[in-house]
């Protein structure tokens, strides 16, 4: 059995990537299982999805504890305590990271990880082909399909199964097929992920001991006030709005329309973007009457 875990942020399409891989493996005649982690995931919030592929019926359920392949849509997740994409990885694992940085730079962030680490800038490839960030699902789903040794034909068939269900325009669907071929060619240079010798042995996640505590301790009551900025949603951002002060007329429009309260006004009434919190919705960029904001791709 091969166990593949996808980590992304809500909206990056890792649920779909997991489905593309699952459908591709199913088209190739394997038994497949795929499931995303459902919870309070939102655009930008860390989420995960799991795919299992085997020649026989899969009876294992739940989260994947010891993955053979981990696909990470966004390198800021590598050190995110809420995401923990490398949890359960060992020397036999392969981790594929969508990043603008090279392997050495990423390894510095995760020194404890000893397995194979692959990296490529799939976002750039996706944007160049489809001009849509959401097509990262196609790129990483097909890259994973290639890495587990599925053929290009099966990968494209799996992609088509998912595209049929989507709300995309015909032109977008075609662009996604183009993207799949480009990514598959790129991923073919990597050696495929091998099945572990003991891969059929069922995974067991350690049980959590539940202790009884009085409601005041055990209940999720919040006694703090206004502490949400500590969550730092700034790392949700794919693109960053940057103010070009000379073009700003101090009209207040970006400040008033920012849904997040991530823009404040300084003493001279110029807007100040709080990059620790800004989720990168880019509403300010779109709404600014003098086009005083430019957009920069986040490179962290």
């Amino acid at each position: 059995m091969l166990r593949i875990r996808f980590h992304g942020r809500g909206g990056q399409g890792m649920k779909t990537a997991s489905r593309i891989l699952g459908s591709a493996a199913f088209r190739a005649g394997f038994c497949v299982q795929d499931s995303p982690v459902y919870g309070a995931e939102r655009r930008g919030a860390p989420m995960a999805a799991f795919t299992r592929i085997d020649r026989v019926q899969i009876r294992e359920r739940g989260a994947i504890v010891r993955p053979d392949l981990v696909v990470v849509a966004d390198d800021t997740l590598l050190t995110d305590p809420a995401a923990q994409p490398l949890a359960g990885c060992d020397a036999e694992s392969t981790v594929l990271v969508n990043s603008t940085r090279d392997e050495a730079a990423l390894r510095q962030e995760v020194p404890a990880y000893t397995g194979r680490l692959l990296t490529a800038d799939f976002t750039a490839v996706a944007l160049a082909t489809t001009h849509a960030l959401a097509s990262l699902s196609t790129a990483l789903g097909v890259a994973a399909a290639c890495l587990v040794g599925l053929s290009l034909a099966d990968s494209l068939a799996g992609l088509d199964d998912e595209l049929t269900e989507s709300h995309m325009s015909m032109a977008q669907k075609e662009a996604n097929r183009q993207l799949a071929q480009t990514v598959y060619a790129q991923a073919s240079s990597w050696a495929p992920v091998r099945e572990r010798e003991d891969s059929r042995i069922a995974e067991t996640a350690p049980l959590v001991e539940v202790t009884f505590d009085p409601p005041r301790l055990a209940g999720p009551s919040i006694y703090a006030v206004g502490n949400s900025p500590q969550r730092r949603t700034g790392n949700w951002r794919q693109f960053r709005p940057v103010l070009q002060v000379e073009r700003c007329t101090r009209c207040w429009i970006c400040f008033v329309r920012c849904p997040e309260a991530a823009i404040s006004l300084d003493a001279q009434e110029y807007p100040v973007v709080d990059y620790d919190e800004c989720k990168g919705c880019l509403l300010c960029v779109h709404e600014c009457p003098t086009h005083a904001f430019t957009v920069e791709k986040e490179v962290r």
Partner: peptide, 22 residues
């Protein structure tokens, strides 16, 4: 200018409802 709903919530980026509530 004072904010009464601070940033850092898990609400989606670009939420129209949050913009109105703010």
């Amino acid at each position: 200018r004072e904010e009464f709903i601070l940033p850092g919530t898990a609400i989606c980026g670009g939420c129209g409802g949050l913009a109105a509530l703010r």
